[in-house]
Design a protein around this nucleic acid. Structure first.
Length: 452
DNA sequence: TCTGGGGTCCTAGGACCC
DNA sequence: TCTGGGGTCCTAGGACCC
């Protein structure tokens, strides 16, 4: 059921749900050459952005029929956890990512909380990436639930980008029982914008000749890279839409925002030359860190040191696993008031990756600050990384595996697999739960709290 | 009843060296 | 005595993304 429509002055048209194909503008052959006003022929790129809809919640619902069609939210296992992802049923009640659990419950008393299972999400994500690699080697894993594909060179084989997108959606749904929204456009910025235009289960195309028309009314905050602060600053200049941003004198933007101003100008025009970078060509990681919100706010130095030891061990272990060592250690502290949030860093004479070296540096940093409040969050980060000789780099050109294996490694390395806990380090007081490693809520097992 | 965690990039100011 | 200027490294903080 393809629902095709012409460019609309009513943006709400593009927000309709359902499994529809939205063409923002009239149909035309894709991946072809376009003529510019100066009679120069140039080839444009065709980029897909795939965004898994309510990824963690959808995976849980797919695995557990009892959760389907119901308002659920995926949370961490720690005491001070927040909503990671909510199902569309829960979103109707206003349950949003980042909400405190009590707040979400207030919005939706029927909300079912599911403790996240990161291994499950990693596995699903890697499987989806592998499917993408059937269409092009140029797959950039942007996060555990988002990826870019450049299919410019694949169109001869697969026809149109829409065809690739529809195949991919069908395969993902069939294999994993979940949906995604796909945006198709001449660059990553616009592909990401397009994938956001229709959720869930959308397919939105922005053709090169339609860019200006589409952007004219798009709010600047919809662009990836313009956050709340930048949006406010631009609004202050009277800029609220991308059209306005693109027409605004670049000199004034540069004066106000520096180098970012130039970038903003290009964004407003829908220009983005950033390539789709596959895992094997990606930059090596630049820092490795862990932080945790403590079960309760603490003040005593000995308590803080225990957490620092755990964090240092987590960081060191991961650095060694990646085969990197670093020269700079950073200590991150957030006070109980939640507002005071600062970091102190120190560059060492040598590269280190042993937990003990990291710990000692962290303690030195701690001792150099006078704590003014109980501590809510502690973090330790190692940066200034160097790749250790004789080890495989995490990313970069050093690996000689097949690209499928590499892309899957990238997902696993970044989002999954390690299940380090520090119960032994922390056995005396029985606290646990905060040592769950992110970037996404990786507690083991599924546990439904408050079903119904 | 509060508000997670892992990253990247940019800026600004100071130290230090030539 | 009022004294340049460039480069690099370092620290701290902020904005942004997922």
């Amino acid at each position: 059921m393809n629902h095709v429509f012409a460019p609309s002055s009513n943006p709400s048209h593009r927000r309709e749900g359902g499994n529809s194909l939205s063409l923002v503008g009239e149909g035309r052959e894709r991946g072809s050459k376009i003529r510019t006003g100066t009679n120069i022929t140039m080839t444009h790129r065709t980029i897909l952005h795939i965004d898994m809809n309510a990824f963690f919640a959808s995976v849980e619902q797919a695995m557990n029929p009892a959760l389907r069609g119901r308002p659920i939210a995926v949370v961490g296992s720690a005491k001070r956890t927040v909503i990671t992802t909510s199902s569309y049923e829960a979103r109707k009640f206003g349950v949003k990512t980042g909400m405190a659990v009590w707040e979400a419950k207030r919005c939706c008393p029927e909300l079912i909380l599911v403790v996240g299972n990161n291994r499950r999400y990693t596995h699903t994500s890697a499987g989806i990436v592998r499917m993408m690699l059937d269409y092009t080697p140029l797959v950039e894993v942007f996060s555990i639930d988002e990826a870019f594909m450049e299919v410019t060179g694949s169109l001869k084989l697969f026809g149109t980008a829409e065809n690739i997108a529809m195949q991919l959606k069908a395969r993902i749904r069939h294999r994993f029982g979940i949906t995604c929204s796909i945006g198709i456009a001449p660059n990553k910025l616009l592909a990401k914008l397009a994938s956001d235009m229709e959720k869930p289960d959308g397919l939105t195309v922005i053709r090169p000749e339609e860019v200006a028309g589409v952007l004219e009314k798009v709010p600047i905050g919809d662009l990836c890279g313009i956050g709340r602060k930048t949006e406010r600053s631009l609004r202050f200049l009277g800029i609220t839409t991308c059209g306005q941003l693109g027409r605004y004198p670049v000199e004034i933007l540069t004066k106000r925002f520096g180098i970012v101003g130039e970038h903003l100008h290009r964004m407003g025009k829908g220009v983005d030359d950033a390539p789709v970078v596959p895992a094997e060509q990606a930059e090596p990681v630049k820092s490795v860190g862990h932080s945790m919100t403590l079960e309760r706010d603490i003040e005593r130095r000995e308590d803080i040191l225990r957490y620092l030891l755990q964090l240092s061990e987590m960081v060191g272990r991961r650095a060694r696993r990646y085969g990197v060592s670093g020269k700079t250690v950073r200590l991150h502290i957030r006070y109980a008031d939640f507002v005071t949030d600062f970091a102190r860093q120190k560059t060492l004479p040598d590269f280190v990756n042993l937990s003990d070296d990291i710990y000692r540096a962290a303690v030195e940093l701690l001792d150099a600050v006078t704590l003014e409040q109980p501590v809510r969050l502690l973090g330790v980060c190692l940066s200034g990384l160097r790749h250790e000789a004789g080890q495989l780099p995490l990313f970069g050109g050093g690996r000689k595996k097949a690209s499928a294996a590499r892309a899957m490694d990238a997902v696993n390395d970044r989002y999954g697999e390690f299940s380090v806990t520090f119960a032994s380090l922390h056995a005396d007081d029985g606290e646990k739960g905060s040592f769950v490693i992110s970037p996404a809520w990786r507690p083991e097992g599924i546990r439904c709290v408050d079903v119904g």
